[in-house]
Simulated scan of single mutants.
Amino acid sequence: MLRKIAGIIFVAGEEGVTLNELAALLNLSPTEIKPMIEEVQQTLKDHPLSPIDLVQFGERFLYVTQADLDPLIKNFAQSPLQQKLSRPAIETLAIVAYRQPITRMTIDEIRGVSSQAMLQKLVSRDLIKEVGKLEAPGRPILYGVTDYFLNYFALSSLEDLPPIEDLALNSQTASEELFSLKRWEINLFDQEE
């Protein structure tokens, strides 16, 4: 029964689960469940390899990282290489790939929103880089893709990108295919393998 309780709390994730929800799921009373939860809590605390604690926030029970691991976990979670690209980042990356060299202002005009944060994220992941400056007032930065971008997507050159016209013919809109998360989803943790 302890394993079932531990499993339900695990699956509940960040939302956690209440004592009454556990009791209903396991066909037990809350008074029967409470000592079992305490036993799971103690087992996690006592096990030398356990990185988690079972805590109660309000009415809900959930797992959290043990306090002594907080700095390490925080650094890992904030590392740009551990996060997948969001839809806005993928859109920005595709625009740079198809229209390079391109300024942030032009990207903003195409997307209809500011792309500054997306450009910073893509630069930090080595997918785009500064390729020059436009000979215009303020000398805005021109962006282009990196060799890592080509390597990651197994492209020998930008000519290997699918033509935008083909994308428009084969889908409801070009942006649905061009910005498809399945096509462009990146987990840069793979780059170390």
Score class of each variant (00 low, 15 high):
142 L>P: 09
126 D>I: 14
118 M>R: 05
161 L>W: 04
163 P>E: 13
153 F>R: 12
114 S>G: 04
88 P>I: 06
89 A>G: 09
167 L>H: 00
93 L>Y: 10
43 T>V: 05
160 D>M: 11
131 V>D: 15
78 Q>G: 01
6 A>V: 01
187 N>S: 07
11 V>F: 13
86 S>T: 14
9 I>Y: 03
111 R>T: 13
102 I>P: 05
46 D>P: 00
104 R>F: 02
25 L>A: 14
68 D>A: 03
181 L>H: 10
152 Y>S: 14
192 E>D: 12
169 L>D: 10
46 D>W: 01
75 N>L: 07
90 I>R: 03
126 D>W: 08
142 L>V: 09
127 L>G: 11
20 N>I: 11
122 L>V: 02
119 L>M: 07
25 L>G: 08
95 I>E: 09
25 L>Q: 04
14 E>K: 07
181 L>G: 11
102 I>G: 12
77 A>K: 05
158 L>Y: 11
110 I>V: 10
78 Q>P: 00
108 D>T: 05
82 Q>E: 02
1 M>V: 11
27 N>L: 00
62 L>K: 08
103 T>P: 13
94 A>D: 09
1 M>S: 14
33 I>G: 01
28 L>R: 01
172 Q>S: 08
5 I>R: 03
169 L>V: 03
124 S>G: 06
163 P>D: 15
100 Q>W: 06
56 Q>T: 13
174 A>T: 10
155 L>N: 07
153 F>W: 14
177 E>M: 06
108 D>N: 14
14 E>R: 10
52 I>P: 01
96 V>K: 06
12 A>F: 10
126 D>Q: 03
187 N>R: 04
103 T>R: 07
26 L>W: 01
